[in-house]
Structures are given as C-alpha cells and as structure tokens.
C-alpha cells in the first residue's frame, strides 16, 4: 500500500463516513456498518475493501463475525511527514523551558 492508495481511499465521502463511523465505535461488523448507509451490502463491502487495501481499516475475526477497526497509522504518517518539524520545535521549546525552570541547562543537545 502506497501513500497514493491512502489518498485515493480518503478521496471519497462514503469511505470517510465509514471511517467516521469506526472512529465513533471501533470494531463493527459489516452489518453494523451497512446500517448507517443507504447502500447495498456489496457497495459497502467494496468501499471497505479499498480502505483495507490502503491499510486504513484493519479486520479481525471474532467467532463467525469479521470486525472492522480504524487503523490511523497511515494518516499519522501523512501528518508526520508535513507537521512533525513544527511539532518538534514545540516539544523542544517545552523541554528547554522545563530545563531552565529546573535550573539545569543542558547544552549537550
């Protein structure tokens, strides 16, 4: 799965809605996920397949049921790619502040 797959999977409002639904309640069956939609089971299954292919949804068998879970890691990696350097500055600033307040300047970083 490439980052292209992630963006393609996210570029559809129905698929984003499915992710919203899992964000609200993780670990749903196909039936539960269909309940919120005016779509055939096949259509929802196809959307879930695209989400799973992009690693945005992870599945697990639980007895006879297949449960769907939101996997946030690809989105985290996207955020990390463009936001991390700003975040890093903030973390370092907090760290420096703490060291100053504790009177232990650490010049080794």
């Amino acid at each position: 799965m490439s980052m292209d797959d992630v963006f393609k999977a996210l570029a559809d409002p129905v698929r984003r809605q499915l992710l919203d639904s899992l964000h609200q309640r993780n670990g749903q069956t196909l039936g539960e996920l269909c309940a919120g939609h005016d779509m055939s089971r096949q259509a929802v299954t196809k959307h879930l397949g695209i989400l799973e292919e992009a690693n945005l949804v992870a599945t697990r068998k639980d007895g006879r049921e297949k449960l769907h879970f939101l996997n946030p890691l690809p989105i985290f990696e996207i955020a990390d790619r463009w936001i991390e350097k700003f975040e890093h500055g903030r973390l370092r600033a907090l760290d420096d502040l703490k060291k100053n307040l504790e009177g232990k300047p650490d010049g080794k970083r």
Binding site: E84, K104, D106, R109
Partner: peptide, 19 residues
Amino acid sequence: AMPGLTSVPGCKSQEAVNQ
C-alpha cells in the same frame, strides 16, 4: 527515529539523568 520521540515531554532525557 523521528526527533521528539527520545523522551517523554516533561521527563528527563537520558543524558540529563547521567549528569
């Protein structure tokens, strides 16, 4: 590793502990 992941914010880094 990505920067910012080597210590818990608010937790001393290893080099600070070693001092």
